[in-house]
Design a protein around this nucleic acid. Structure first.
Lengths: 346, 346
DNA sequence: CGGCACATTATGAACGTTCAAGTGAACGAT
DNA sequence: ATCGTTCACTTGAACGTTCATAATGTGCCG
């Protein structure tokens, strides 16, 4: 960025001059109003308003040794089509305002998150903390951040040691259980499951919720299948599943893309989604919305709020022992679980 | 954010002390290496490296009266399912590194962009400039920013006066023309068009490119239809279009969602996308990738780079007269325009 | 050898804010 | 009248940079 000086703008001194008080009194009026005589307070605030004064964040940062910013990495390569990264970032951005800070995104062209980007942000003191996403087994970030004493919070479990580190995640098991309950209530008979290949923590969790749900509710357990997060493979796996099901049955899926696979397979054999076969997805992604799929929407606003609160507490030194939190998704019913399908796709 | 002080970190003074030179020499070594004797330079840089020193961005900002940051608004409510907002933000974030600055996203819960968020960012001097998206007729932002002397650049035309303001956009007409050329080359006979209802600048532009394409290339002009950016309505409009087409024909669409509508309508009547009917979308959105649709991918990296360059020039005062730039999309061929369809998606 | 230009490095000041310490007035207690 | 307290506000200093300018060293010429 070039360095030519723009016109000088209103500072705390301008406000002080106009209000006929000192710098510090203006500062107090803004930061510790109780220290200022009410009469003076209102006069100062009036001038603040008149001059549209806002404290310079750079000066504050320098003085406080606090950037008032939280970094988060955007994955430049491996973005999933069903991704909820944008709504999550939006939720973080909105929450940040409440926490008197702002988000600073950064990205690299590497397939996996490297430390260098994080180190650079910290050294330039551009951010105070990080929100991690897409943590994976063997992820070097949590250990490094803890060692460096840099606060962080993760959207998604820390796999290497779920008891360590701060994280928030959606309660997958509770979610799929809610889906089964909804399907049972709506009137489907048998409920199958389409998940990811066994071994992924998230996938296994969501499958467990389905298994528990079909036991607790008045539905029969249907077959279970798996496919990776790709539409053609989901369709293929769904075909096999539908072979073992009949109209009136339903499938709970571990993701919206998998649910879309079931929907397409069903359409392929002339079954109407909703009317003939119940389908639930997971994540509340744009894909579910576009295709009118019932889905378990992730509580992104609460997750974002929680993560920033956790980071905030760490910065204040008032953090409890590190721990994770599970939050409930909400079931958004749509055409794919309505016996008499609505017209149109919301 | 809380205000407790963290451990003090390495500053320019630490480097100076260790290297046995003064503050300013370290500063020069970093910012104006040619002013420093080579011998001294390498010694200083070595110490910089050893101590992992990076200049504090807050101190620089305060000194330069330049935040080194560009704000951009995330639309919290009206996100489109096929949106390319995330890849675009990622592209901006990557470009920002090259321009020695960073992006600061902000969001409000309003349906339409308000000025208040922009004003607040400027007054706190959190950003120097803005990148606008989703500009619409009657948008108050360009006028206000210009009046306030705040640099900006828009992804998408400034509708109120396309000759005014800085913007970059994808060349829609050139794109759809490319699609027609590709379809003609691949061997489709008749090429129809599915766009948005007339009146939208972007939609009319893309339609014009199709009209021009079918004249210039060796294909017959098929019927043209329109639908809003919603899947069910796109399917309905596609049905009407397909009634007038036969296998071996193709449809150029103004968006990926519309193309998906055509794909679904085709599947509904047993036509194989690609083999029986050519379909092209527009935008290179996640939707196209997920469904294996041939699409015109927006040159997001170039657009982001261009916008930041424009903003940069305005800040440096070296900006040319305000003007817009059109950039070409790239045609990403996929299953929906392959006569012998590939196995799998993407 | 003095002096002058030039290259290199060093020092003071300022960016805007807030903390720590200080001033001064009002007031009751001694 | 003197002293300590409290309240309301003010002043000096510092956060870490970089600009402007001053100081120092180096080589060259008369």
């Amino acid at each position: 960025m070039p360095n030519t000086r723009p016109a000088t703008r209103t500072t705390i001194m301008d406000v002080a001059r106009v209000a006929g008080v000192s710098r510090q009194t203006v500062s107090n009026a803004i930061n510790s109003p109780e220290r200022v005589r009410p009469e003076t307070l209102s006069k100062v605030l009036q001038v603040v308003e008149d001059l549209h004064y806002r404290p310079s964040s750079a000066a504050r940062t320098l003085r406080h040794q606090r950037a008032g910013a939280v970094g988060t990495e955007l994955n430049a390569v491996a973005a999933q089509p069903s991704d909820i990264a944008l709504p999550f970032l939006t939720a973080l951005t909105l929450s940040a305002t409440r926490h008197a800070c702002h988000m600073v995104p950064f990205a690299s062209k590497e397939a996996f998150p490297l430390l260098s980007g994080y180190q650079d942000m910290v050294r330039r003191r551009l951010v105070d903390a990080f929100v991690l996403t897409d943590t994976h087994p063997g992820d070097p970030r949590p250990a490094w951040l803890e060692e460096a004493g840099i606060p962080y919070a993760s959207f998604g479990r820390i796999y290497d040691d779920p008891t360590r580190g701060y994280w928030a995640d959606v309660d997958g098991a509770a979610g799929t259980k809610m889906a089964v309950a909804h399907l049972a209530e709506t009137g489907y008979r048998t409920v199958g499951f389409l998940g990811w290949p066994a071994g992924s923590a998230v996938g296994d969790d969501r499958r467990a919720g389905w298994a528990q749900g079909v036991e607790e509710h008045d539905v029969a357990a249907g077959p279970a299948g798996s496919a990776p997060q790709s539409l053609p493979e989901a369709v293929r796996a769904a075909e096999a599943l539908l072979d073992e099901l009949s109209p009136g049955d339903a499938v709970v899926c571990a993701s919206d893309v998998l649910a879309l696979g079931v929907q397409q397979a069903a359409l392929g054999r002339g079954w109407r989604p909703g009317a003939d076969i119940g389908i639930t997805g997971f994540d509340g992604s744009p894909v579910a919305q576009l295709h009118g799929l019932t889905t378990l929407t992730q509580p992104l606003n609460e997750i974002a709020e929680h993560l920033l609160t956790v980071v905030h507490d760490q910065l204040a030194g008032s953090a409890d022992a590190a721990q994770g939190t599970l939050l409930l998704p909400t079931l958004d019913a749509n055409n794919s679980t309505v016996i008499t399908p609505k017209k149109g796709t919301s």
